[in-house]
Simulated scan of single mutants.
Amino acid sequence: MRDREMKASSSLILVLVSLCGLAASVSSQSSSDSCSSNLNVDGIRFDTTSLTCISAWVSENFILRYKQASANTWSFVLSTPSTDSYVAMGFSKNGLMVGSSAVVGWVSSGSGMMKQYALDGQTPAQVKPDQGSLTLLSNSSMIASQSNRTYMAFQLAVAQPESGLIYSVGPSGFTPVSPGYQLIQHQDMTSTSVNFGSGQTRTQGTPYTRLRKTHGILNMLGWSILMIVGIIVARHCKQYDPMWFYAHTAVQTAAFILGLLGIICGFVLEHKISASNVSTHKSLGIFILVLGCLQVMAILARPGKGSKVREYWNWYHHNVGRILIIFAIANVFYGIHLGEQGQKWNVGYGVIIGLLFVTLIVLEIQKFRK
């Protein structure tokens, strides 16, 4: 009798385990999506048959389905894991966020909202709702949460969409609210390039990375780091006359040449990426170059030590150099911000500049004491 009870109990446990496993399997299948599964979402307002499916963002399990519905109409359905923030899909000419337009959607308290945003800059104020270059067909947009997935569907009136697609997901717990519907910085993002004909997609890095780094490093070395070294040599090494003058001239000449090459790289880069948000950075760079040219001209017109105007020349030469360095440092930090290089570049450059200024201050204190 006891053996029968034990066998019955064992059988019951096995049945329960099997049922739990089946339920978990069903739950897992219902909460996942892949290109091998059928799209069965309520509320999509256009035909979803024969959609091409790609794994848009593997690490975040973003699935994109699309097709050309007519000569000037493209249909898109973006599937993402359910989130308590926004999801976004942007269309970019060069793979960059700035200058592109994005469709952004979120589900909050059971209701969904979709808006187009113009990504004019990196600050929240420059990400503008209800603006952008995309032409969304009226009554085609829909966002819904179903089976632990968020589905964002829309149609574009365009002959050929931009092949640069950008995806992002907002920080947990945040959804835009009226009246401004302002976004805050995304939690994560990726930039991809898609061949809509073949369905091939690849994650792409920032375009012209090497040229960007060359532009930044040359300007860092030229207009700020070496310029400060040249000032230290001129101000605190005069006991080694005339070697201090030759060293100062050599360092500043090298700084000017490197800075000039950096600015040339900047013009080439601007032409290649057709950037629309670098006007301030470019203007500051030209201003710095003009100051550098004035310094070179001043060296060529340097009066002798006994000249009556030597004092005024010294005042001009020293202060133009200081103004140049202040603007150069500010523009380098601004360039790092525009290039979206992150904290590593800011910290690295800041540490170098900080060490140079500490050295200068220590030398100034020693000079004052003497």
Rank of each mutant, 00 (worst) to 15 (best):
1 M>S: 12
3 D>C: 00
5 E>Y: 04
6 M>F: 03
8 A>H: 00
10 S>F: 08
12 L>H: 04
13 I>C: 02
15 V>K: 03
21 G>Y: 01
23 A>G: 11
24 A>I: 11
30 S>M: 13
37 S>A: 09
37 S>E: 08
39 L>I: 09
40 N>A: 11
51 L>M: 15
52 T>H: 02
53 C>F: 10
56 A>Y: 09
57 W>Y: 15
57 W>K: 12
59 S>Y: 11
59 S>I: 13
60 E>S: 15
66 Y>A: 01
67 K>I: 01
74 W>G: 07
75 S>K: 02
77 V>P: 01
79 S>V: 15
79 S>R: 05
84 D>Y: 01
84 D>W: 00
85 S>N: 06
85 S>P: 04
86 Y>M: 06
86 Y>S: 04
88 A>R: 11
88 A>T: 12
89 M>H: 09
91 F>T: 10
92 S>D: 07
97 M>T: 13
103 V>L: 14
103 V>Y: 07
104 V>D: 02
105 G>C: 08
109 S>P: 06
110 G>R: 03
112 G>N: 01
119 L>N: 08
123 T>D: 03
124 P>W: 01
139 N>L: 10
140 S>N: 08
145 S>Q: 10
148 N>C: 01
148 N>I: 02
152 M>P: 02
153 A>Y: 01
154 F>P: 03
162 E>W: 04
162 E>L: 14
164 G>A: 08
166 I>S: 02
168 S>F: 07
170 G>R: 11
173 G>R: 02
173 G>K: 03
176 P>R: 10
177 V>I: 15
178 S>I: 09
179 P>I: 10
183 L>I: 09
188 D>G: 00
188 D>V: 14
189 M>D: 10
189 M>V: 07
190 T>H: 05
192 T>H: 07
196 F>R: 01
198 S>C: 06
200 Q>F: 02
205 G>P: 05
205 G>Y: 03
208 Y>K: 04
211 L>G: 04
212 R>S: 07
212 R>G: 05
214 T>Y: 03
220 M>I: 14
221 L>H: 00
221 L>M: 10
222 G>H: 08
228 I>S: 04
232 I>Q: 08
241 D>G: 03
243 M>F: 15
246 Y>F: 13
246 Y>D: 10
248 H>Q: 13
251 V>T: 10
254 A>H: 00
254 A>D: 03
255 A>S: 10
259 G>I: 06
270 E>M: 09
278 V>D: 12
279 S>T: 14
284 L>D: 04
285 G>E: 12
285 G>H: 11
285 G>I: 13
288 I>L: 08
290 V>P: 04
294 L>D: 09
295 Q>A: 12
297 M>F: 14
300 L>P: 00
302 R>L: 05
303 P>S: 06
307 S>R: 00
310 R>Y: 04
311 E>S: 07
313 W>L: 06
320 V>R: 00
324 L>E: 08
325 I>F: 09
329 I>L: 06
330 A>S: 12
330 A>E: 05
334 Y>R: 14
334 Y>I: 13
337 H>K: 10
338 L>D: 13
341 Q>T: 12
345 W>A: 06
351 V>Q: 04
352 I>V: 15
352 I>P: 01
353 I>P: 02
353 I>M: 12
357 F>L: 15
362 V>C: 13
362 V>L: 14
365 I>C: 12
366 Q>G: 14
368 F>N: 01
